[in-house]
């Protein structure tokens, strides 16, 4: 059985006249250690898909399993536990705590995780050794995104979920971030799921899931994904 399976998953918002079908009867699988890109135009349902996968939202119907655990069956504290130990999130707009330094933002994640990495080492890994004691407002966008990734990595998550990680960055910085994500996938064996509307980024993936109007359009495999340094947009 695959690491991640979506089995006839639907997500509806609202009701009656104003019912919005964000996802409708979605089925796909992702293998452990994949670098998977979910590609689609805005409003296609990508973020909804990621939110369901990350345990931030509940599916209306269908089953999601991650590593043999049925995420759709988890309740309250179990769901928190799942986010805490299994999932790392990277947001488009970083969502760092403005009044914690870069290092402290990473420590924040370690607080709740049992087998976390040493925050300083992780900061080193993302290349922010020199800027550890700066506050988010003193960092550039790329640096902030790296803090955000460090925060996710620190928890040693089996699953790294990234929502438009390069959306707010320029091309050059974006490439650096993607390269970092590729390294993570390669070195720690984490499964990385990246959401984007940018088709170029799909070239880095060994699994590409195309989403359109709340449904899966296609799933492609690529045996030899490109290196981040080779692409540009």
């Amino acid at each position: 059985m695959a690491y991640i399976t979506f089995d006839h998953v639907s997500k509806h918002y609202g009701s009656g006249e104003s019912l919005v079908r964000a996802l409708e009867d979605v089925c796909f699988e992702i293998e452990k250690g994949d670098f998977c890109v979910v590609l689609g135009p805005s409003g296609a349902g990508k973020t909804t898909l990621l939110n369901l996968l990350g345990g931030m939202d509940k599916a209306t119907s269908g089953t999601i399993t991650v590593g043999g655990r049925t995420v759709t069956g988890l309740r309250g504290p179990q769901l928190t536990e799942y986010r805490r130990s299994d999932v790392g999130f990277v947001f488009q707009f970083y969502n760092l705590m403005p009044n914690l330094t870069a290092l402290e933002n990473v420590e924040l994640a370690r607080q709740v995780c049992k087998n976390a990495f040493d925050p300083r080492k992780v900061m080193d890994q993302v290349g922010l050794r020199e800027r550890m004691d700066n506050f988010p407002a003193q960092l550039s966008g790329g640096e902030q995104q790296r803090v955000s990734i460090a925060r996710a990595l620190c928890k040693n998550p089996a699953l790294l979920l990234c929502d438009e990680p390069t959306g707010a960055l320029d091309s050059k910085t974006g490439v650096q971030i993607l390269s970092l994500l590729q390294d993570v996938q390669r070195d720690s064996g984490s499964t990385v799921v990246v959401i984007t509307h940018n088709a170029t980024i799909a070239r880095l993936a060994n699994r590409i899931i195309r989403v359109k109007n709340g449904a899966i359009e296609s799933v492609e495999f690529c045996s030899s994904p490109e290196r981040a340094e080779e692409i540009a947009w």
């Binding site: 990350g54 931030m56 504290p77 928190t80 536990e81 799942y82 986010r83 805490r84 130990s85 999932v87 999130f89 969502n95 705590m97 403005p98 924040l108 994640a109 709740v112 995780c113 925060r151 928890k155």
Partner: peptide, 16 residues
Amino acid sequence: LREYATLKVLGYHQRE
């Protein structure tokens, strides 16, 4: 709100 939501996403329990 954003900060608390982030903490929630990071896996902080409500109690925490």
